[in-house]
Computed example of a mutant assay.
Amino acid sequence: MQTSPKPKLLIFDVNGTLLNMDGIKTAINQAYQHPGAFTQWFSWLLQYSLVDTVTKTYHPFSEIAEAALQMTAASLKVNVDAVFMQDILKSMQQLPPHPDILTGLDLLKKAGYKMVTLTNSASAAQKKQLEFAQLNAYFEETFSVDAVELYKPHPKTYQYVLDELNFDPQETMLIAAHGWDVAGAARAGLQTAFIARDGQALYPLAKKPEFVCADLHELAVQLAAL
């Protein structure tokens, strides 16, 4: 049961939450000739973004993504040419929204929620992503971690958005389909909502989110009723 105050600001993760990465998953698994290649790549992408944060280093997310593609090829002992890797990086900017996103965002917009995004991708890449997916109109502002040169789930990435918009964490909710993102936002004091997409799970040692929903439409119905 929702016991926290009604959130006034909703912060959305982008990759995997709003945008569907299934096409990239298929392309990587086929090119790398392994059904787990995409999962390995994405795990290393997140892992080494955290290595940058912990070691006080910063490389753009696209550079880490390319490095992780190279590492995946090396670990699976396959030859993948540089052109394919560049095509994958470009396709990250041309992801379709998940089927539940438009109806969910429509409901939340009609309910009067202020909505913004926060992504590990660079600002320019995020702009292209939202334009391609035709989601720009739903978000009043978009934020990238490149402004603070720290990757989510570092608490300062969420605090950056709060400071920019002058909101308290208790009146703000992060919406994400990643357990690590939900855990980080909760640690920063935000309310959270987990979208339980296929293959995703919550971190059992973190604070439980205020909402766990199968998709954004289900969450939007509940938030609109508050």
Rank of each mutant, 00 (worst) to 15 (best):
S49E: 01
L50P: 06
L50W: 02
D52Y: 01
V54S: 09
T57Q: 02
Y58D: 02
P60S: 01
E63Q: 10
I64A: 04
E66C: 04
L69C: 06
L69W: 04
Q70F: 08
M71K: 14
M71A: 15
A73E: 03
S75C: 10
L76C: 11
L76N: 05
K77V: 07
K77F: 08
K77T: 10
K77W: 04
N79P: 08
V80N: 09
D81V: 03
D81S: 01
F84K: 05
S91I: 05
S91T: 06
M92R: 01
M92I: 06
Q93R: 14
Q94C: 15
L95S: 08
P97M: 12
P97W: 03
H98M: 14
P99C: 14
P99K: 14
I101R: 01
L102A: 10
L102N: 04
T103P: 07
T103G: 04
G104A: 07
L108C: 13
L108E: 00
K110D: 15
A111Y: 12
G112P: 15
G112V: 11
M115E: 03
M115F: 12
V116H: 01
V116Y: 03
V116P: 04
T117N: 15
T117A: 11
T119E: 06
T119N: 06
N120A: 10
S123F: 13
S123D: 13
A125Y: 02
A125D: 04
A125W: 02
Q126K: 00
K127Y: 07
K128Y: 00
K128S: 01
Q134W: 03
L135I: 02
E141C: 09
E141Q: 15
T142P: 00
T142Q: 00
V145Q: 01
D146C: 09
E149V: 05
E149I: 07
K152M: 14
K152P: 10
K152Q: 09
P153N: 13
P153M: 11
P153C: 10
P153V: 10
P153L: 13
K156W: 10
T157D: 08
T157L: 09
T157V: 12
Y158D: 11
Y158N: 04
Y158R: 06
Y158F: 14
Q159D: 09
Y160H: 15
Y160V: 07
L162E: 10
E164G: 10
N166M: 11
F167M: 12
D168Q: 12
P169L: 08
Q170V: 14
E171F: 05
E171I: 05
M173E: 07
L174D: 00
I175F: 13
A177W: 02
